[in-house]
Simulated scan of single mutants.
Amino acid sequence: MPGPYDDLVDHLVRSSPLSASEATRVVAEVVAYFAEPVQDYVRRRHTELRNRGWHNDRIFAALGTELATRRVAPPALSARQLRRLVYG
């Protein structure tokens, strides 16, 4: 059954050393990454950056910048809104 990203998979196979199955997996992972809900993304990234030793002020500034660069960017969130997504 043809998939919605077959043209992208074909392009990756032609333009890289990836096999068709590898390209299909990469495309699926990228699509899933960008489909992650904002709340899940913020919580996941907060944990990752906290584990690197970052403090919340730096984390929330980075998250604001990162969210603005998402393929479909959500509305700008304040540090307070980001903090609420993380801590409830």
Rank of each mutant, 00 (worst) to 15 (best):
Y5F: 15
L77D: 03
E29H: 15
S21P: 02
A28L: 12
M1G: 12
F34R: 10
L67W: 00
I59E: 02
P37L: 02
V38Y: 01
Q81F: 02
F60A: 07
P4S: 12
L8A: 15
H11W: 10
A32L: 08
F60I: 09
V9T: 09
Q81I: 04
A73R: 02
A23H: 03
V72I: 01
L12Y: 12
W54E: 14
V38C: 03
D7M: 00
V26E: 11
V38K: 06
A61S: 10
R25W: 01
A23C: 00
D57K: 06
G88T: 14
V13T: 00
L67F: 00
L82W: 09
S21Q: 12
A28G: 14
A32P: 04
V30R: 11
L49P: 06
R83E: 07
P2F: 04
V31E: 15
D7E: 15
E48R: 13
L77H: 05
G53V: 09
I59N: 02
N51K: 12
R83C: 00
D7S: 05
R70T: 04
I59P: 03
H46C: 12
H55A: 05
V42F: 03
D6K: 08
R52I: 01
E29W: 10
V42I: 09
D57V: 03
S78N: 13
A76Q: 14
D6I: 07
L12I: 13
H55V: 11
V26S: 14
E29Q: 14
A28C: 12
R83Y: 10
P75W: 01
R83Q: 08
E22W: 03
R45H: 03
L85T: 02
V30Q: 09
A35S: 11
G88W: 11
T65W: 06
A23V: 03
W54L: 14
V30D: 11
T65Q: 04
V26I: 14
G3F: 07
E29F: 09
Y5M: 13
R70P: 00
E36M: 05
L82I: 07
A76M: 09
V86Y: 10
T24A: 15
R43Y: 13
A61N: 12
A35M: 13
A20S: 01
A62T: 05
A73G: 00
V42W: 07
R52S: 06
L18P: 00
R58L: 09
P75T: 00
V86R: 02
R83V: 01
D40S: 05
S19M: 01
V26P: 11
R45N: 09
P37T: 02
V86K: 10
V9D: 12
W54P: 03
P4M: 12
S16A: 07
F34H: 14
V86P: 00
V72H: 08
G64T: 08
